[in-house]
């Protein structure tokens, strides 16, 4: 590998593989694939330096459809394979593609420890709130009471809030977007790439077969204005139609409340998004009942030491010591004795 390379001017096409895509018609995965291909072409990274690691599930077929290096691994274990790869070669741009079941159910342990360590990679979690590839059982993000093949009387489980879990696991970058929000998704993917450390992106993704319309109450054109708040660092937390704007204020009991923003005074009361504030990010991530909007965009972003850099810094420090890496010395150890012939 040469250290300085001319990165070709890529187009989206350069990131398409020759494999036939086998997702169902109308699946939200198509839109995400298209966005990722578009964004990869813009990052200025040579194609051979991308590695996509996935687990198991519909979303995890993703690597096969990209022309980069790809590893379709084991259910829930993509974070482990990606961590090993990144430790072996920190020079790679590593992307984990996973789903709500893969990341939060079978792979929950790896998911939280990946974020805790802050390995420099991106995690794209396609959340369709259902098990697709196993044909329609409730997932750890399915709403309580969901009737599925494995829960004919409704699921008893409480769902996870993925961004809430990520923040609870001390993630340093947490964002949320939607498969069909092309521009916003692109912005989030770029931001995730720019962040040094583990970037967690929850992508709402419609499963047209087993959970069709799961997000339509938020994502349909009309609902979008009323129920989605696109957050931006340094900007007031305001959403809604131009003539009926609403904003978030903090109440003395540390909960958020929606107010109508009618006057400059109202506007002054509205919270300004601070993406470095964990409390605010947590409050934003966990909004979602009927009275509150859902926050989209970069909810949280803080700088923190990166795992593989720390590991390799220790190695470099050890290597720079005099007498380092003397194999004979290591094998001989401290106490030796000679037996004469």
């Amino acid at each position: 590998m040469s250290s300085v390379e001319d990165t070709p001017a890529y187009t989206k096409k350069d990131f398409m593989s020759d494999q036939t895509i086998k997702w169902c018609p109308g699946c939200g995965d198509y839109s995400i694939l298209s966005q990722v291909q578009t964004v990869f072409a813009e990052l200025g990274i040579p194609r051979h330096k991308f590695a996509i690691v996935s687990g198991i599930g519909c979303s995890s077929r993703f690597p096969y459809y990209m022309s980069t290096y790809g590893f379709h691994s084991i259910h829930g274990r993509a974070p482990t394979v990606a961590t090993g790869l990144k430790l072996a070669n920190p020079d790679l741009s590593v992307w984990v593609v996973t789903g709500d079941g893969d990341a939060l159910s079978i792979g929950g342990n790896h998911f939280i420890h990946l974020l805790r360590r802050n390995v420099d990679l991106q995690v794209l979690m396609f959340n369709n709130r259902i098990y697709g590839l196993t044909k329609g059982q409730y997932s750890p993000t399915s709403e309580s009471g969901k009737r599925t093949k494995s829960s004919p009387m409704g699921s008893v489980d409480r769902p996870f809030n993925p961004c809430g879990v990520a923040l609870g696991a001390d993630a340093t970058f947490v964002a949320r977007t939607v498969d069909i929000f092309v521009k916003e998704q692109r912005d989030v993917l770029l931001a995730a790439h720019q962040h040094k450390g583990s970037s967690f992106v929850e992508i709402w993704q419609n499963c047209s077969i087993f959970n069709d319309g799961a997000f339509k109450d938020w994502t349909e054109k009309k609902a979008r204005e009323e129920r989605i708040l696109f957050v931006q660092h340094g900007q007031p937390l305001i959403y809604g139609a131009k003539d009926a704007q609403k904003g978030l204020v903090l109440q003395p009991n540390l909960t958020l409340k929606v107010i109508d923003v009618l006057t400059p005074e109202d506007r002054a009361r509205v919270l300004v998004h601070d993406e470095t504030n964990l409390v605010m990010a947590t409050l934003l991530a966990r909004m979602g009942d009927e009275t509150m909007p859902t926050a989209m965009g970069v909810l949280y972003r803080v700088a923190h030491p990166v795992y593989e850099e720390g590991v390799h810094a220790q190695i470099e420090a050890a290597r720079s010591k005099p007498g380092a890496a003397d194999l004979k010395k290591a094998v001989y150890g401290g106490n030796t004795w000679k037996v004469e012939g």
């Binding site: 690691v53 590893f71 691994s73 084991i74 274990r77 974070p79 482990t80 394979v81 990606a82 961590t83 090993g84 790869l85 990144k86 430790l87 072996a88 070669n89 790679l92 342990n109 790896h110 420890h113």
Partner: peptide, 15 residues
């Protein structure tokens, strides 16, 4: 499991 998965990832990466 993570130990084995990371080992496999490192093998892929050339270690």
């Amino acid at each position: 499991i993570a130990a084995a998965g990371a080992t496999l990832g490192a093998a892929w990466g050339g270690a």
